[in-house]
């Protein structure tokens, strides 16, 4: 049980961005802020909050910015869908070429 919590904690802190040293995740960082945040994550896990509840807790305090894994909402439709769109359009172009060539 304890080991599971540790894994979950690492997973969560890897997904939180440190506000002090802004290129790092909380997991990677050793700033004062990151260290306290790790304790908070620990406490929240022990309180029985789920991973997503913990994310939304931090998101309500610090904004979307703190999450490394962007949520899928109206701000990020393009972020998530554009690469997939490019993939399918690319596929369609290639497929189309082949059809033409076959004739």
């Amino acid at each position: 049980m304890k080991a599971d919590n540790e894994v979950l904690k690492n997973k969560i802190t890897k997904n939180l961005r440190c506000l002090i040293c802004q290129g790092q995740s909380v997991y990677d960082s050793d700033s004062e802020f990151a260290n306290s945040l790790k304790i908070v994550v620990d406490n929240k896990i022990n309180e029985g909050l789920s991973e997503n509840q913990i994310y939304s807790y931090f998101q309500s305090k610090y904004g979307d910015w703190i999450l490394y894994d962007p949520l899928f909402n109206k701000n990020t439709y393009f972020l998530w869908l554009l690469p997939l769109l490019i993939f399918f359009v690319g596929g369609a172009i290639i497929f189309n070429k082949f059809l033409k060539k076959q004739k």
Partner: peptide, 14 residues
């Protein structure tokens, strides 16, 4: 003027 972070989980998933 919304600020978000795009980090490793995004790239891994896609």
């Amino acid at each position: 003027s919304q600020k978000i972070s795009v980090g490793p989980p995004f790239y891994h998933k896609l």
